[in-house]
Design a protein around this nucleic acid. Structure first.
Lengths: 208, 208, 208, 208
DNA sequence: GATGAATGAGCGTTCATTCAT
DNA sequence: GATGAATGAACGCTCATTCAT
């Protein structure tokens, strides 16, 4: 009991340090880019000594991994909410729009972070971890496609889920990174929704 | 970028060295990833001294750039062929399939290379270069959408071209990198074609 | 010169390291010459890792600069003392001798260092810094020549100050480096004093 | 005889190449500085292949040495002429002025070269070579001081010769390198002559 | 002889990580 | 636990020199 009482505050402080480090990393990535995100710089921005940083993270990569996991968790939570069984009676358009808007918001918070996570995700070492995450999201999509009560096309659900996920993810990320002139965010989401819907339920005029 | 001048290979031997370096780089990227592609390792794999490497490339980045340009050129050549004005009377399905198959072949040669080029494309320094390339491809797509004699949807051509290009590119790349179990290449291309076609000309049954 | 910031030594241990590096540099310069003064060699002689060296000096040149500044400061302090206004009533012979003896002592501590500083002073990058120092010393001399109550020749004070400073400096340095056989230090200083005095106040017999 | 006839043109061509290399080196040193004077650059400016350069010079240093020797020879020739026994009856002022003007002209041709030679001369490896040269010039001065029929001070001729040579040399070189504002070449030489003459024969008024 | 492609030792520098205080 | 000084492997790159053609 005494042990526990002592531990609580300690853990709280520890958690605070961990968060400070993660937040500092996001801030550095967002403002200064991946190359600037050295352990020294992160510790500095976090207001923590380099020694302390290594108390909580075994190595630099563990920080990025934790960040990635945090983002994975957020994305999964969003997707689980969007594709929840409770929504199986919703109009597909509603679900699709919810997914797109949700992702857009997630990415918009700190684009620089997602740029870096995209880069890191492509690194060999992390590939499997990312793939595992992808599979989980794709699974959610597949389940939704199979189980929705709405009349969507159901041929080849495996391929469909894969394609839809990758297309949406990449397009939104590319938009964020390239900011193509003359294409605003609303327009993109709207057209992306059209793209997806045409595939799932046919042309727009029939959907109305 | 003060690209200090480097010797242009004059003798046959020199051209061989340049090729050896580029090929070695592809090999290293493909097998060991970006981090392993140090100048020392590239020279080693190329069977060439580090000095020789620097006779033909002003700095490490110049090697990756050369590789990128080579791949850009190949891709553009393909796309120009697929979307050539001579094909404006073709059925959209034919054009789309040609584009998909062409890209698939291009990427299949060395997926690791394309993974890295995707990474590099995300790095700030190269971003503009990549964006410029993207814009050129997107322009080809846009022109085709506007000019084809076939009845395709023409609402919002700018957004459409951007979305189509990014979706196809990312999906095919992800497929190569993840090799999702239970999804073969033929199936993917077929379904991707369906995806695109549904958007462009409506559901399959109407196309027949 | 974008001198990236370097840690200021806070702990006693750190100050020790900085001193070790500077002292090692002097030792290397003195014994092995400028070319041998690589960062690796300096760190080695200092008994310090190369990493430590770079914690306190932004680049190799910063070490030499620090050394140069240290020597400049010492020399200026000496000269200010010798040419202080409080001495304006002294016999010129006394002032001249004080300057010569002071310089001789300064140079004798580590002639090799001064040899190198002379070299570095000739390098373009440092030239202005050195010239600025020269000008300050020359200014001291000029002021003394103008203000001394003793009857010295005052024609062309600017040129005189320049010539006197350069002559004395170079002669003493050359003496230390060449150690010409059959010419001892006392004799040199004495004769150098005669040289300067003859110019300033006329031949020896008249001075008595 | 036939051999000889063939050799002559060969040697002439060889001498031409050697000169081309030396001249190119002077040009590079003068315009681009010591760091730019790589063997590659020298060969390039000389219009000669790097291979040919090594046909005539065993190593880079040999080029600088040759240049140094060439300059030593010129200087010695000048000094020998100035201090020739034939001039032992000349007024000291005439001899001194001749020496100063001669040196000024020599240095003025390519100050950058002399800056570099001064640097190189201070490098440990070359020190002895330079000292040997210094001694020869000092010897000429000493001989002149001892043998001139004019009434100059003759106390301590060894020290005097050393001091005079070093002072004049360093002052003129420093002037060339620093170009102190408000001090023109004529003025400097005039005052330097006064400096030397006051020491050798006493104040100006007595000299007339 | 002349050429220039090839060589590689060695440089300055960075930064993730350790460990004495 | 926290600190930050110290570490050193590893990197990108230069340039004097060699040698096959």
């Amino acid at each position: 009991m005494t042990t526990r009482e002592r531990k609580q505050p300690r853990q709280a402080r520890a958690q605070g340090t961990v968060n400070a480090i993660l937040d500092a990393t996001v801030r550095v990535l967002d403002r200064e880019g991946l190359d600037a995100a050295t352990t020294t710089r992160i510790a500095e921005v976090a207001g923590v000594s380099i020694g302390s940083l290594y108390q909580y993270f075994a190595h630099r990569d563990a920080i990025l991994s934790a960040l990635q996991d945090r983002e994975f968790d957020r994305t999964l939570a969003l997707m689980q909410k969007v594709f929840a069984d409770a929504n199986l009676d919703d109009a597909p358009a509603k679900t699709v729009t919810a997914a797109l808007r949700g992702l857009a918001e997630l990415y918009a918070v700190s684009p620089g972070l997602h740029r870096v996570l995209a880069i890191e995700g492509l690194r060999v070492a992390k590939a499997e971890h990312v793939h595992a995450f992808d599979l989980r999201v794709i699974d959610l999509v597949r389940h939704f496609l199979s189980a929705t009560r709405a009349p969507v096309q159901r041929r080849n659900v495996d391929a469909a889920a894969f394609i839809l996920y990758q297309s949406v993810r990449a397009t939104m990320l590319a938009y964020l990174l390239e900011r193509p002139p003359g294409l605003d965010s609303e327009r993109l989401i709207e057209e992306l929704a059209n793209f997806v819907m045409a595939y799932l339920v046919g042309p727009e005029r029939k959907r109305r």
